[in-house]
Design a protein around this nucleic acid. Structure first.
Lengths: 134, 134
DNA sequence: CTTGACCCTGTAGTTGCTACAGGGACCATA
DNA sequence: TATGGTCCCTGTAGCAACTACAGGGTCAAG
């Protein structure tokens, strides 16, 4: 035995039911079974599950996660398609990084003004405010 | 009139139904109504909605968004509470930035190897792989 | 005065989990 | 060897966060 479903869950902070759900919808492969019918996972599945969970945590939908996993799974070297998908996701990733950095600045501001005991006007909403169209 | 619900939706890439949903659960205030009963929004609501949408896109739950908005709404200067919440979110934001930067590197790698036409092994999964516990 | 694009209030459906219910497997120990 | 605790199994039903649609009113343009 390498990994039980419970160990997978602990390692990736995922509920057992969620892992079975990912299997049902085809995001995780059906694992080998032990003689007692328990699921039997290896390091590859652990990596895949970790990727899914962290990508989900970053706000990607399951369909987007499927596409990202496809980049990894695809052995056909359909470079045009892969390139397009990767570039779309790269754009989105860059946007998210910028948003998070803006949010980070504002959180820092809140924390610093709290430390100083000042009644600073909180501008946290402005960090992720609407795009100005002058 | 300042903004209709449809204009709010376009400006923040949000479905009209979703805006009404946020109002129903109390994330957005009940806006003023015009004589014809149409919702009538101002810049403040637009900013708030933009914040909600972008925070959601970054993987924060509605409850977390509520807490972040609370940092902005709170005029009580309960600095201890605000400080704690802000610090928790700052930690999470930093983790997400790190994950996105790792994912970014791997996407760049995929794109570059596609450009070069090489059949590079795709390690995109490894970017968000499990935490090593040697 | 009608046609199309908006808005209104419902309610029901979808996605992505999450929580049981009901049952079997395994293992320590009394 | 029996009994308790902790795992695992397959369902199915519920919850969060939307999303779509039905049935209807508003309004500017032609």
């Amino acid at each position: 035995m390498v990994l039980t479903i419970g160990e997978m869950g602990k390692a990736t902070n995922t509920k057992i039911e969620t892992i079975r759900y990912y299997e049902r919808i085809g995001l995780l492969p059906r694992p080998a079974r032990k003689t007692n019918n328990y699921r039997d996972y290896g390091q590859a599945e652990l990596g895949r599950l970790s990727f899914i969970r962290r990508a989900r945590d970053l706000g990607f939908s399951l369909d987007q996660v499927r596409a990202l996993l496809g980049l990894s799974d695809d052995r056909s070297c359909d470079c045009a398609g892969i390139d397009r998908i990767a570039k779309e996701h790269l754009q989105e990733v860059d946007r998210k990084i910028a948003d998070l950095q803006a949010l980070r600045r504002e959180l820092k501001g809140v924390i610093d003004s709290c430390d100083g005991g000042t009644v600073a006007q909180c501008r946290i909403i402005d960090a992720l405010g609407p795009v100005r169209m002058d």
